[in-house]
């Protein structure tokens, strides 16, 4: 595991796994866009269904391990690169040769982590470890918690900022992971690039629409 090549592969694999998770997460959250009553019933049932499922519990553990591994290897690789750089340039214009977000994956990742902490604290932790009000079906009423949160405009802004950071991270991350895993045929490279753009666009747009839509329709 000391080889940066292997560490990179682990970054790519955990990254891809988290990409798949984002799709599932978005699909589930789209229920929030249903008419209010329907959304409440459907979303609370869905949350209850997920929290009781053993398969989901395993995936949850896998998710936490993936996030942790993604962070740990990112730190190891970054520190190693710092060492590899040696003395700094007095005058440095190397940035003109690449995209800013490709050079700042660590910064974007840190923003996503901050967002993730807020996100988990406000929803996941609340759901798992506190007594929430019960809805008509007898399930914990996570829907109302979500709606309350998105009532605050500043909270929606935090969400949008987090998702923008996620978007740029995905924009480079998706294609970079494909390259690390060895997609070299120019035809497939192009395919992965376009798929990466589409994927990033859909994921970021989807996650941005939800809080904005709720905020605008609730008042």
């Amino acid at each position: 595991m000391k080889s940066t090549q292997i560490q990179k592969i682990l970054m790519a694999l955990t990254g891809f796994f988290l990409c798949i998770f984002l799709v599932i997460h978005l699909l589930g959250n789209l229920q929030l866009l249903l008419p209010a009553e329907k959304a409440k019933t459907s979303f609370n049932w869905y949350s209850h269904f997920l929290s009781g499922n053993i398969l989901i519990k395993i995936i949850e553990i896998l998710l936490f391990v993936s996030v942790a591994a993604h962070i740990v290897y990112a730190l190891i690789l970054t520190l190693n690169a710092k060492k590899a750089n040696g003395q700094k340039y007095v005058y440095d214009r190397r940035g003109t040769a690449s995209k800013w977000y490709s050079r700042n994956m660590g910064m974007l990742g840190s923003l996503i982590l901050l967002f993730l902490i807020i996100h988990l604290k406000d929803f996941w932790y609340q759901y798992k470890f506190t007594d929430l009000p019960i809805d008509e079906q007898g399930y914990k009423d996570l829907y109302s918690i979500v709606i309350e949160a998105y009532r605050q405009w500043w909270y929606v802004l935090i969400y949008l900022a987090g998702i923008v950071a996620l978007g740029f991270h995905l924009l480079h991350g998706f294609f970079s992971a494909a390259r690390t895993l060895g997609v070299y045929n120019p035809k497939y490279v192009k395919g992965f690039r376009i798929f990466g753009w589409l994927y990033t666009g859909i994921i970021t747009a989807g996650f941005m629409i939800i809080p904005v839509y709720i905020h605008l329709t609730i008042i």
């Binding site: 690169a81 690449s98 390259r179 060895g182």
Partner: peptide, 25 residues
């Protein structure tokens, strides 16, 4: 002691021989 490749593709831009980053892939 070289660092890892994070696919910024800056190398190809500066390469006098225009060696493609697809070599890395």
């Amino acid at each position: 002691g070289f660092g890892h490749c994070s696919n910024t593709e800056a190398c190809e831009v500066e390469c006098p021989q225009q060696i493609s980053v697809l070599n890395i892939a």
